[in-house]
Nucleic acid binder design. Structure first.
Length: 424
RNA sequence: GGAUAGGUGGCCGAGUGGUUGAAGGCACCGGUCUCGAAAACCGGCGUACCGGCAACGGUACCGUGAGUUCGAAUCUCACCCUGUCCGCCA
């Protein structure tokens, strides 16, 4: 969410930001309405507060007279009249503020200066690591997974529905190994605090990270309790310190959390649907960082490197892609996608998305820090990135490390966890 | 799920419907004292919004939301959360 002062003081910059995303045309009506409502809001506040001040003076006078044993009927009548006016004006003010707030919640974040303008065609490959294996002779992961008894899509569909998977035998063990490998890597070597979050969260939490109100259709919801299944651990973990003020000495700090992720994927039918590439429930280890505004650029690089390290340790070739403004997510100011090469599918798979949200999430979630004793609290900057998503990582392992006989070499770093060096 | 007790500032904790943003204590910051520290004493110490170049003024906030009233931390209702006991349960 943006500061509403933006509408008053820097509306030009806001429009530029939306234009860079290619979203100005669609959102211009909201922006101009927001500008108008922002002024209207202040006019209403002045009118209400003026009358409240008068009422307070009047009420004090009533008290004084009553103590002196005098009558105060005239003042009481005056107060009643003021009260009625205040009531009317407050209804108008509330309507204005609610509409203004709704508009602010619908406007996406602005991108940092070094993010290219335009749509996804303007994305930039920043660098590549490793040598992509030739697709020749490599079976896709769903074939290998089925042959080795690791992935059971049919029964996933029977038991839950399309887009749900059973990992079985070595598949289940591989999932468990990845969980431990990723969490150990980031907690022990990269200094993150290990967190095991709840996967059901309330509406305020979902709003804090930007999933609501705009993307309510994408989330699974419980009946009766109004809870949501998280689409990523980013949601509960970023909200850990919602409505709190941190001490500057606590920054920067990072959290690593494994969680299952639940996504309805409304509207993405037909995209990457083969195998386990896009499912309604999948596993992921997520990295979340809080920092001061001054260091968020450096922190994004650090976080992205942590995610890349995971891929490098698994020996999977990947590339880092800087997303153009129009391809950057709603809440993000700058995003790097990490894409790993899957020779069996013959495609680069997005296994991680690392973003800095500037103060956009922190303002929504009201996460602040105090720079120094006696100073005013400021919003922190939040960042997050996958470190990594399991299914696509599994696909890459099964394809990139595949042998001619259909067996798969286990990456060195997973051997202690898996207890073997070869699948099949 | 039932019963019951509660939710007040960073923490603890007072608070009769009328100068209560809120006593008192702790913590913290500054000062006096001291060679230094402790103790003692003095002073300071919330957040947000509106107006103002500023000084400053105004408004709101005592779990949340409605209501009663000229006036609500204080009264009424609903909801949320926490503690305790009972029931159920991995």
């Amino acid at each position: 969410m943006h500061d509403m002062r933006l509408l008053r003081e820097q509306v030009g910059a806001l429009r530029d930001g939306l234009r860079r995303r290619g979203a100005l045309e669609a959102l211009e009506p909201l922006v101009s309405e927001g500008e108008r409502l922002e002024q209207e809001r202040r006019t209403h506040i002045a009118a209400v507060e003026e009358r409240k001040a008068a009422r307070n003076v009047s009420s004090q006078e009533v008290a004084k007279r009553k103590r002196a044993g005098e009558g105060a009927d005239d003042l009481i009548a005056h107060g009643r009249q003021l009260g009625e006016e205040i009531g009317r004006l407050e209804v108008e003010l509330a309507a204005t503020e609610e509409r203004l707030h709704r508009i602010l919640l619908e406007l996406p974040n602005m991108n940092l200066a070094d993010v290219p303008d335009g749509d996804e065609s303007q994305n930039v490959i920043v660098h590549e690591w490793g040598t992509p294996r030739s697709p020749e002779g490599v079976k896709p992961h769903w074939e290998v997974g089925a042959t080795l008894g690791m992935i059971d899509l049919d029964r996933g569909a029977k038991v839950s529905g399309s887009g749900f998977v059973f990992y079985r035998g070595l598949g289940a063990r591989l999932v468990r190994s990845l969980l431990n490998f990723f969490v150990d890597l980031h907690a022990r070597e990269h200094g993150y605090e290990e967190v095991w979050p709840p996967v059901l969260v309330n509406r305020a939490t979902m709003t804090g990270t930007g999933q609501l109100p705009k993307f309510e259709d994408d989330a699974y919801q419980t009946m009766g309790d109004g809870l949501f299944l998280i689409p990523t651990a980013e949601v509960p973990v970023t909200n850990l310190y919602r409505d709190e003020i941190l001490d500057a000495s606590e920054l920067p700090r990072g959290f690593v959390a494994y969680s299952p992720c639940f996504r309805r994927e409304a509207g993405s039918a037909g995209k990457d649907t083969r195998g386990i590439l896009r499912t309604h429930e999948f596993d992921k280890v997520e990295l979340v960082r809080y920092c001061t505004p001054e260091e968020s650029g450096v922190q994004l690089e650090l976080l992205t490197r942590h995610a890349e390290t995971a891929l490098e340790k698994l020996g999977i070739p990947y590339r880092r892609k800087l997303l153009a403004a129009g391809d950057t997510g709603f809440s993000s100011a700058k995003t790097f996608d990490l894409e790993a090469w899957a020779p069996g599918v013959g495609a680069w798979l997005e296994v991680s998305s690392c973003s800095v949200f500037t103060d956009f999430q922190a303002r929504r979630a009201n996460i602040r820090y105090r720079p120094a004793k006696g100073e005013k609290p400021r919003f922190v900057h939040t960042l997050n990135g996958s470190g990594l998503a399991f299914p696509r990582t599994i696909a890459c392992i099964l394809e990139h490390h595949q042998n001619a006989d259909g067996s798969v070499n286990v990456p060195e770093v997973l051997r202690p966890y898996l207890g073997m060096d070869r699948l099949g």
